[in-house]
Design a protein around this nucleic acid. Structure first.
Lengths: 128, 128
DNA sequence: TTTATATCAGAGTAAATTACTCAGATATTT
DNA sequence: AAATATCTGAGTAATTTACTCTGATATAAA
């Protein structure tokens, strides 16, 4: 996604290109981009000279969006993951540790939603 | 650890007792307490009427201490875990995402080091 | 129209991790 | 001596992770 952000003004970038640059297998990248497309973070152009591009500008894409698209809800424990609260343990009420995990979950989301792709490619914001 | 904090003024609490109360197998609990003892968060009393007790008062034990003792360094990615930085990928310098993971790691540790066992057992601090 | 270049999609897999169990030794109280 | 605990290392089934493989489909360029 950082590579796509760097190429944002140009046409679509192919998986092959990104794979070479980042030393990831094209096949694996392909799978990853499928998830990113389903989450509508990138759009695809099929056929020769095709590839992927960001669905919106780097400043409008939060790292949290990317992580959630690829790994599901951001949470330190399954039982406090938004959307899958039901399937955990049945002791929600009496659980003394739940509050801790909820606070941690919220802070994690805050951090990742506070950084955009734009922040990542403007080196000024990387080193702090 | 919360149970031990609740029993802090009394004598040692046996694994059997905690296992029943929290519905965890005694054998598994045993293994967990071994790690906690190695980290010097609890002390043990062997023999009949023995058990475990907190090594210091609940207000002096941070949740971060407990988590690190049981699960190792708190980090969102292996490559930013303190102590195991060497064994990750060889692209540390060029890695554009590393800064994000480091920031997330620091915030996670901050959250967990800001809550003590004392906070957890005084219900006033649980619900916020 | 053909050919090359891409994405699209689902299935499969080896290795590592997780969440435990088991067996037996050692220490202490009653 | 007997009962009650912790101590220790080894073992294991299920899940997850980080991929690969195969083949279909869409599009641009020759």
């Amino acid at each position: 996604m950082v590579v796509l952000a760097l190429n944002f003004r140009d046409g679509p970038t192919s998986i092959r290109e990104i794979a070479q640059r980042e030393k990831i297998s094209p096949q694996y990248l392909e799978q990853i981009f499928l998830d990113l497309r389903k989450a509508e973070l990138v759009s695809s152009v099929r056929g020769a000279r095709g590839g992927y591009k960001l669905a919106r500008s780097p400043s409008e894409i939060k790292i949290g969006d990317v992580v959630r698209a690829l790994e599901g809800p951001i949470a330190p424990m399954e039982c406090v993951a938004e959307g899958s609260e039901a399937s955990c343990c049945e002791r929600t009420q009496e659980c003394l540790t739940r509050g801790v995990w909820e606070k941690l979950r919220d802070r994690m989301n805050e951090v990742l939603d506070d950084i955009t792709l734009e922040d990542m490619i403007s080196s000024r914001n990387i080193n702090n």
